[in-house]
Amino acid sequence: MSRTEDHIVVSARGLRKAFASHTVVDGLDLDVFRGECFGLLGPNGAGKTTSLRMLLGMALPDDGTLRVLEYDIPKQAQMARHKIGVVPQMDNLDPDFSVTENLRTYGSYFGLSQRAINQRIPALLRFASLEGRADARIESLSGGMKRRLTLARALINDPQLLVLDEPTTGLDPQARQIIWQRLRQLINEDRTLILTTHYMEEAERLCDRIAIMDNGRILAQGSPEELIRTHIEPQVVELHGPAVEDWVTRQAELYQCRSERVGETVFCYMQEEGELVTALTHQPGLRFLHRRANLEDVFLKLTGRDLRD
């Protein structure tokens, strides 16, 4: 796909937002192209949700320019939202309504006629695998069902762009797998997806491109493979055990690894692990795990290992 102007769905330049004296988004530059799944990855408080809220006109930028679809945001946010579907972080399904009533009511907020909404509902129930629960009350649904319904609800206006804030947070692995399948289906329908997540495997599996954010800034941007290739050594050996301290001081430098100590574990990042693995196999008092570097390694390298709560 050639990436011309026409293909840009979201374009942010120098976006800035502060609450009181605390800067939450600090000069965000971002392009999202049609048909791609774009992931905003970052620790809690990195500015992901505020960035999404700005796209929707629900937070007003202090500075910078923002275009979404063909609209200037926040000025034309209401027009833009006609063509956007939103899956919020917090569940806001209407507890007083059944599954179908939730879809019907939400559709009415777009000015859709009852007839147009009713035509869409069967397909949306199928999409959410909730055909059998059309008349169920919201409180009787599991967390996964609620998420699927929220996702289906976001499709009521047949949006070109979907904005999803932590779409699988709090779900069990089975429920998460279904959401991933559905999101892939939406990507294949040539819709554009922007999602935030702090699950690396989610970003790695779903997203064409990822921006790693921290302290309101984008630290790195690219496809998952690109990020891993450009930001970290390809091989990782994780070491722990009673002898680990001794080993690091005496032998680590022999193997040309960049080592990082986290509690009782030492992470060795390196280009070529063969020699080290052979040597470690016969070391008493040491346990080790060899694996390929992944997005989490990049993420932790860029954002640090400090707790963020």
Binding site: M58, P88, M90, D91, N92, F110
Partner: peptide
């Protein structure tokens, strides 16, 4: 509590 209004603000409503 139910964030109904936030939901409405994700649609063209103001």
């Amino acid at each position: 509590v139910q964030y109904t209004w936030v939901g409405m603000l994700s649609t063209p409503l103001s």
